[in-house]
């Protein structure tokens, strides 16, 4: 058994950006390689699941787990790595809060399958074939990992020790985490490796008292480069998003998308945005309010872009009946994407 601590990295339901982000710590990666014994990193090294399964429980010192839990396979690996790891880190927004894969929670499995395999304009599927968890062929039974109804975050499936926010995490935070682990100076379990202020703290733009008469989409306005974007009617999630990125998006005239997730102690970042934005709309009658809100299409998509799976509601409220998600309230719900209607 090697004296070096053992490190594993796994990629579940995510885009792969986090894998690259790990490498973005540049020359520090050499320190990592020197300091750790890399026991499992499917993207980089040829270890198999069986190798991990063969390990003793708790044998891996640290696992950096990126990606959300969307399939049976994701969950299985999460359970396996949890069992084998002393420290499990939810690395990046997908593992931490669901991120873009979590947007699937606006729909459900049935509607996803319907659209992807039947209704999408690019689909050519005359026989109406859908992937099945089990398919019997002459040679035997083929299996696919089951596709879940609800995308979950890592900590909704297994207990998680640390979180590294960001889509992907900025290198300095990966570095901070690695250094902490190498030095053995670990923060209390459950900690987020990050800041406890919001993006506004790092944003150099000049802010004023807010009164929003209408919202603009980025293509509709050329913003003043020195003034707060929100003051100019450009939706910016910076007010409710954990700092740490250095206000990257606002510094290039783009409102913060909110990838670092909500601030400390906030359990529902979308609700914070609703409250803050609702407070500063400059309208007094229901009609005026509606007129302003009409300039803000898809509020749920904005406010829960990264955090839906980890928000309080976690997913759309379609009601399950007879084992199926029946779109019972859907017909009556306005503002809902027509694509999702049955």
């Amino acid at each position: 058994m090697s004296a070096k601590p053992k490190l594993a990295v796994y990629w579940a339901s995510s885009c792969g950006g986090c894998e690259i982000a790990i490498l973005a710590i540049h020359e520090k990666i050499l320190d990592v390689a020197a300091a750790f014994d890399l026991v499992f990193w499917p993207c980089v090294l040829d270890f198999k699941k069986a190798d991990v399964a063969a390990m003793a429980d708790g044998e891996i010192d640290v696992t950096l787990f990126n990606g959300a839990i969307r399939t049976e396979e994701n969950a299985e690996m999460a359970h396996l790595l949890r069992k084998k790891s002393k420290v499990l880190v939810a690395y990046g927004s997908c593992a931490m809060e669901g991120c873009i894969p979590g947007l699937a929670n606006f729909a459900d499995r049935k509607h996803m399958m319907q659209y992807i395999y039947h209704d999408a304009p690019t689909v050519d599927n005359p026989e109406g074939v859908e992937p099945q968890p089990q398919t019997t062929v002459p040679e035997g039974t083929l299996t696919l990992p089951a596709y879940w109804d609800t995308v979950k975050t890592l900590d909704q499936v297994v207990p998680v020790d640390y979180y590294l926010p960001g889509c992907p995490p900025e290198a300095k935070w990966t570095q901070a985490a690695v250094e902490a682990i190498m030095s053995g100076q670990l923060p209390p379990p459950g900690s987020v490796i990050g800041m406890d202020v919001t993006v506004c703290d790092e944003c150099p733009r000049e802010r004023e008292e807010k009164k929003i008469k209408r919202f603009y989409r980025p293509q509709e306005i050329i913003p003043d480069p020195n003034k707060c974007l929100l003051d100019q009617g450009l939706l910016c999630m910076g007010i409710a998003t954990r700092a740490g990125c250095g206000a990257l998006c606002p510094s290039v005239n783009m409102g913060c998308r909110g990838c670092y997730g909500p601030n400390v102690d906030v359990v529902d970042g979308g609700a914070r945005m609703i409250s803050a934005i609702g407070s500063v709309i400059d309208a007094k009658t229901p009609e005026e309010i509606d007129a302003v809100l009409d300039t803000l299409p898809d509020p749920a998509g904005y406010f829960y872009r990264f955090g839906l799976a980890h928000s309080m509601l976690r997913r759309t409220a379609l009601v399950r009946e007879n084992g199926d998600r029946r779109a019972q309230p859907l017909e009556e719900v306005p503002h809902l994407d027509p694509k999702l209607k049955t």
Binding site: P188, G190, V192, I193, G194
Partner: peptide, 8 residues
Amino acid sequence: RVVEMEPA
């Protein structure tokens, strides 16, 4: 969840 930690 969530306890905080200062950046490195």
